[in-house]
Design a protein around this nucleic acid. Structure first.
Lengths: 344, 344
DNA sequence: GGTACAAATGATAGCGCTAGCATAAATCAG
DNA sequence: CTGATTTATGCTAGCGCTATCATTTGTACC
């Protein structure tokens, strides 16, 4: 028998303290912590009482080491997500926290090579158990493959299914685009315009396709202007559309930020909204209600979508069965920026 | 109840593999990893080569266990931070990542008792090494004391020094309020208005005091309306101010969101901005340039402030000396919503 | 050559958990 | 009554690092 040197107590109770307090071995306490069924009800109660009495919390680090899992989830975002980041984080944390996972955030560039390097480096460093990836990063070419090769569990949000990602929460953006057209058609608009998102993003192309198809079906014309999801391009796109001889009376901007740009362009030209022009955005982000007039937009339930992605991710990490399919319901929320088509 | 199985052994190289490859003991590898000076240059080179060859990354969890530190920093935020969250996170991560820390995000309620319980619970669960706390949560009464008692290193952002928090990045909001008044005075405005933030927040009271003092000094009158930092209260506050007989020609809203509300109220009343009314916001958030007209606002360098807070926090955690004092420079960024005072 | 001291490196005990295997007690089949 | 099962619990070897202490080797000085 050798004397064990007194170790400096950090103060926090350990599983050993709990075991001593409950008069059992740490193996049994561990069983309770891990919800193993093979523990006598009475013993379990005693241990749970001891845990409560000592205010014991198992050390996430020790358990991480022993289980070779970190209970950490990485959230990969980009500044394009700025307006909806808060609601997304809220959704992810609401789902992960009760299941014992914490969320590490990681801002990532969009350029493909840099993004892949950045994300892989992050995974290696942080040793997260899995990733939730937001668009547009989720659509970076090659990223899915790189992560698959690195065997990192991933759940992504995206406008379209992405080969390589097993779990993708897809929102029916094409149908939503059609809804926007329908909304404007119902208000009597027949000359429509669209300020597109970047041509290389699936979301933009889906929204566009749905919008144009439905507009055509409704007998409306559609003028197009390019855009890249930022404010300036919204302004420029709107100016291009509004300069036309027979200018559109209803404009769909492929996201809220560009829609704000459209409102700006209209204001600059002295066009009243919605009296002289109806404007619809996409995302249902924070700004919709801060604009004057308040922006009609397609509400995307980001929080729920992100939570669903996190749920899927955890199921994959823990090997449980996949949760129920999650249907993302996108719908046009009418506000002040859309109204009956003007007479001209 | 079901037990979650541990993951089987991963293929990641360990410190032992590196030691074997370099022909040394793990103790020496550990020295290299921790940048201990007492390692022969040649040995060090050999070990570093082995590390590179194996693409070895020390396991953050193992090191966390051994060092009794998690290398995790918690970022406490609230939905009031939604508009600036992205830039803040970016600032924090930019500073922490190179130093080996990851950032865990945690959304928190504002109600005092719930906030304290929530934050303490988070700290116990996640075992973060420290916290960065954003306003308004940083100002929750009793939170500083609770965290001090729990011995959690904290750095906070706030409009005023907070007793109990050792490291607080304070922005000179009073001076900024004065700057706003000066900006409007310089444009010839003499009848001013202010839509205040909540009376129980230090930030709002500081901005108010600075604004009013400077306005008085400049010989202007100031009409006040209450507000609580949200859009609706901005609208209501503006309506109250604009309904007055001798209505103000310049209005300062204590944050950007309320300023958006003021613009909205002006639009509703048919008052042109800035021709008939100048409007100034506070924060320099994302929306300032998305509004029509673009909002003049007080730019707060959130990213830098947050990074400075993180830097201080890490210094405190690691026991290093405190970094240089960080001077937050707030300045009015003039945009389209302010202009010369109208004649009436 | 011997002593003193500094520099470089190694052996190993934890850190606080999980989980494989062992054991003890209770129940059951024949 | 005995061996076979089942149920409840304990013992302890890791998980991949850090850091204390010991050991070895090199160097300076008298």
């Amino acid at each position: 028998m050798q004397e064990i040197p007194a170790r400096p107590r950090e103060g926090d109770p350990t599983i050993e303290d709990v075991a001593a307090a409950a008069g059992v071995s740490i193996r049994t306490v561990s069983r309770v912590l891990n919800k193993s069924p093979k523990v006598n009800a009475e013993t379990r109660a005693r241990i749970e009482a001891a845990i409560a009495a000592l205010n014991f919390r198992p050390s996430a680090r020790a358990r991480a080491l022993a289980m070779r899992r970190s209970f950490l989830i990485g959230l990969i975002h980009n500044d394009r997500n700025a307006l909806v980041l808060d609601s997304i984080q809220r959704g992810v944390v609401a789902l992960t926290a009760p299941r014992g996972y914490e969320v590490i955030v990681h801002p990532t560039p969009l350029e493909a090579e840099a993004a892949i390097r950045d994300v892989l480096g992050f995974v290696e460093r942080s040793r997260v158990d899995g990733l939730v990836i937001l668009p547009p990063v989720s659509g970076v070419p090659g990223l899915a493959e790189a992560l698959a090769e690195a065997q990192v569990p991933v759940a992504a949000l995206s406008a379209v299914p992405i080969a390589g990602f097993a779990d993708v929460i897809v929102s029916e953006e094409r149908a939503a685009g059609a809804q926007v057209a329908r909304h404007l058609l119902d208000l009597g608009h027949r000359r429509l315009g669209i300020v597109n998102g970047p041509a290389d993003t699936a979301s933009a192309m889906e929204r566009r396709a749905g919008f144009i198809e439905e507009a055509m079906r409704g007998g409306a014309s559609v003028a197009e202007a390019p855009g890249d999801y930022d404010f300036a391009s919204g302004v420029a796109g709107a100016e291009q559309l509004l300069a036309q001889a027979n200018r559109p009376t209803g404009i769909f901007a492929a996201n809220d930020i560009m829609a704000a740009g459209v409102l700006k362009a209209a204001a600059t030209r002295g066009i009243a909204v919605p009296a002289g022009l109806s404007v619809v955005g996409f995302d249902g982000s924070l700004v919709t209600r801060m604009l004057s007039p308040a922006l009609t937009s397609v509400l995307r339930p980001f929080g729920d979508m992100a939570a669903a992605a996190a749920e899927r991710l955890i199921a994959r990490i823990e090997g449980g069965e996949a949760p129920q399919p999650f249907d993302v319901e996108l719908r046009v929320v009418a506000a002040e920026s859309t109204g009956p088509a003007p007479d001209f």
